[in-house]
């Protein structure tokens, strides 16, 4: 603070006041529509009973204790982590490969390729899930093509087998989200000065060395961001499970969010239990993000 004159201070205060005035509407809305529901949900997660007559659970952590014994919840947890462990690495590696290819200065029709790879991201989640369901149905396009070119002897009922149904969801997720992550990589690659690569070439670095020694280290913060976002997104996966497979066969593809939805809207509504489950997801996202930040953030 260097201002000493009384008049300038009032001016400063006045500006400050206006600043706060402009912030208030947004702040109020965020508190009302975001923080208040979060706090309410936390309270409800300790309650039980009929939705319009919720009472505090006895003991308070009753809902959370039930979770450990809930077979369907554990199944949904396993499914979600299967998606996470298989899909996120494949998707991020693919996104990195596409970004590197599209960042090539000699490549023609760059705009066209970029649009093609990014376009899936512009499709609605429900719409693309339904299209994948049609493509992978018993008499669908995928079976027809695979049988015609001789890879399969007879059609597979993709969505009615636990493993292939999971595979279809993973394929769908990769198709939908690779382009999205690629855009992040591409934009930060473009901010790396091209002369760095020229210098590296003069020093005799090949394409692979350039990728691993220059591009990836410089992209580390953005890789961290995409990894956290993808983890977060996968843990909250809902549309694909609901629309592509309905969680079936026999809950083999149900996700945690889908099970929460069923608990609230399909089965006998149990608000407290559903809220407790959503807080478990929150904790998982927080823990996984913390681990990723710890592992990924090594700049000194």
């Amino acid at each position: 603070m260097t201002q000493t004159s009384g008049k300038r201070l009032t001016m400063h205060q006045k500006q400050n006041l206006w600043g706060w005035a402009f912030l208030i509407p947004a702040t109020v809305l965020i508190f009302w529509l975001s923080f208040y529901p979060m706090i309410r949900a936390l309270m409800i997660s300790f309650q039980g009973g009929r939705p319009t007559a919720l009472t505090w659970s006895d003991p308070l952590t009753r809902n959370y204790k039930f979770l450990v014994k809930d077979r369907v919840f554990i199944q949904s947890l396993k499914n979600t982590f299967t998606y996470l462990i298989i899909q996120v690495p494949i998707m991020l590696v693919l996104a990195m490969i596409f970004a590197t290819l599209l960042n090539d200065h000699q490549l023609k029709f760059k705009g066209l390729f970029r649009t093609c790879i990014f376009l899936p991201c512009a499709t609605a989640l429900v719409a693309y899930s339904l299209i994948f369901r049609t493509m992978f149905s018993y008499d669908g396009m995928v079976n027809a093509v695979l049988v015609k070119i001789g890879i399969l002897n007879e059609p597979i009922n993709w969505l009615n087998n636990p493993n292939t149904a999971k595979a279809v969801i993973i394929i769908a997720l990769i198709w939908r989200w690779t382009g999205y992550n690629m855009i992040f990589y591409l934009s930060s690659m473009q901010s790396i000065d091209y002369s760095v690569y020229e210098a590296a070439r003069i020093d005799g670095a090949g394409a692979a060395t350039q990728l691993f020694k220059i591009t990836i280290p410089l992209l580390k913060p953005i890789i961290l961001v995409t990894a956290i976002m993808s983890t977060n997104g996968t843990l909250q996966l809902f549309d694909e499970s609901v629309n592509l497979t309905k969680g079936g066969p026999a809950n083999a593809t149900i996700t945690m969010s889908h099970y929460i939805y069923n608990t609230m809207f399909q089965n006998n509504p149990n608000f407290g239990y559903a809220a407790a489950m959503s807080f478990v997801i929150l904790i998982l996202v927080a823990v996984l993000s913390a681990i990723q930040m710890k592992v990924g953030d090594k700049r000194e």
């Binding site: 039930f66 014994k69 809930d70 077979r71 369907v72 089965n267 006998n268 149990n270």
Partner: peptide, 10 residues
């Protein structure tokens, strides 16, 4: 049956 009894146990 266990699954349903579990939900009904709330």
């Amino acid at each position: 049956e266990d699954t349903i009894n579990f939900t009904m146990g709330f």
